[in-house]
Design a protein around this nucleic acid. Sequence first.
DNA 1: GCCAACGTTGGC
DNA 2: GCCAACGTTGGC
Length: 156
Amino acid sequence: MAKRYWLFKSEPSAYSYDMLIADKVAEWDGVRNFQARNFLRDDITEGDGVLFYHSGRESMAVVGIAIVTRSGYPDHTAWDIPSEHFDPRSKPENPLWFMVDIQAVEQFMQPVTLAEMKKIPTLENMILLRRGRLSVQPVSPEEWNAICKLGGVSAF
DNA sequence: GCCAACGTTGGC
DNA sequence: GCCAACGTTGGC
């Protein structure tokens, strides 16, 4: 199966790329949107590439890349009552929400800002620019390459 | 801090 | 099943 590419958004005060580096591997839990859930459950598989995007006032930029180390599996925080992501509709025997694991690969030399991305014709159809609110979204190989290049990833 | 976009909920 | 109300995200 061909490797696919994704963009994951995170508010850096909630979870930043630096925290991912420190944690080595992160469970991408807490996604509570059905479209994003479907990607996590059905499409995102081990080995896929992830652009890590910081949303919010301080950053608004892709800051690095990550790799999926575990394909979709049930998000156990949904049945963890003290968790802020608790959702009584999800049960271990019939999970509603899903997550994947990711690992940091390389921090960008240069964060690629939202303002910068808006100026690149190759990126004009990016979901990030068209429907800003989806927190897990597919990225085309062309978009992936353009952003990695701008970010100064060593492979380019 | 404001507000547009948009996903979700719930009354009918 | 429709749609108004509501809540959240996230850029500005």
